[in-house]
């Protein structure tokens, strides 16, 4: 069941800073991400959302693949796995099936999930196994220093699209929805508080939840594509490049041109895989 955010332990309305330390592993900061990288903003939103759900750290597992975003599990004090490029959802599938009690979060990126791990991604959506897949989408391979990814927009520059990408980009949300994910949302690092709420909803959802999180890679994508600094990237791509679902309802098609929708884009109810498996075992043994 999904509910509104009500369980906040440290609401921002009270103007008290959130204490991240109970969720972080001691002595691991500063993290490896570059100055201005949005991944840290996403991580903080996630930790606040986790706190709001009240899920115990022992019951949380985070599984990642390879890439900048996949370094997230090293910092969080959950049960964590840093696996192979593209394979996070496959590892997570085995873990969750073996121990359905765990709430499994997959931390992955646009290259990791959409290219090398594309097959695992769509099949995870199809199975509707209870897991929250976070795609840190910065439109580039950061760890290997700036190659084009399946979400690099057309005409944008990377080290492997030096004259502008000629490939159309994947829409992660459309892909997830079509593949069968029962919760599909988009957020941005710029809208960090809204993202926190979306993450909370994703965590509370029972089934495969996919959140496409737009964040910025100033080191490669920003530099190659002539953004002055990360703030300009956040303003132009994350703020001006998106509209919330509520705003979009009031805008004309012309105004929506080129903008990505933010918020919960799809939600449906379908038998969760582990529940289905339990039914099967009951039927066979009963």
């Amino acid at each position: 069941m999904t509910t509104q955010v009500t369980a906040r332990t440290v609401p921002y309305k009270e103007k008290k800073p959130f204490d991240y330390s109970p969720f972080l592993r001691k002595g691991k900061l500063p993290h490896i991400w570059c100055a201005g990288c949005g991944h840290g903003i996403v991580l903080k939103s996630l930790l606040r959302a986790v706190d709001a759900t009240g899920i115990a750290k022992d019951d949380l597992a985070m599984v990642s693949g390879i890439g900048c975003s996949s370094r997230t599990p090293g910092y969080v004090d959950f049960n964590t796995m840093h696996t192979l490029h593209g394979r996070a959802t496959a590892f997570a599938t085995g873990l969750k099936l073996a121990k359905p009690r765990l709430k499994v979060i997959v931390a992955t990126g646009d290259g990791d999930a959409m290219a090398i791990g594309g097959n695992h991604f769509i099949h995870a959506c199809r199975r509707n196994m209870d897991m929250l897949i976070l795609v840190y989408n910065n439109y580039i391979y950061g760890m290997t220093s700036g190659q084009a990814s399946p979400t690099t927009p057309e005409e944008k520059i990377s080290t492997t699209s030096r004259y502008g990408s000629i490939e159309p980009a994947f829409d992660i949300c459309e892909l997830a929805k079509t593949a069968g994910a029962t919760f599909v949302a988009r957020g941005t690092a710029y809208h960090a508080q809204e993202l926190e709420k979306t993450l909370y909803e994703g965590l509370m959802h029972r089934g495969t939840a996919v959140i496409d999180i737009l964040d910025s890679c100033p080191t490669y994508y920003g530099r190659f594509n002539k953004y002055k600094n990360v703030a300009e990237m956040m303003d132009k791509i994350e703020k001006d490049g998106t509209v919330s679902v509520a705003q979009a309802a009031k805008l004309s098609p012309e105004k929506l041109e080129g903008k990505q929708l933010r918020g919960i884009l799809h939600r449906s109810e379908r038998l969760e895989y582990c529940d289905g498996y339990k039914n099967l075992v009951d039927r066979v043994t009963g």
């Binding site: 599984v63 796995m81 696996t83 192979l84 394979r87 496959a90 590892f91 997570a92 599938t93 085995g94 873990l95 969750k96 099936l97 073996a98 121990k99 765990l102 097959n119 695992h120 769509i122 099949h123």
Partner: peptide, 17 residues
């Protein structure tokens, strides 16, 4: 699983559980 790679990865996930 959806492929050979996924099946060994899932098995490792099960083992870690």
């Amino acid at each position: 699983m959806e492929d050979e790679i996924g099946s060994i990865c899932a098995a490792i996930g099960g083992a870690l559980a």
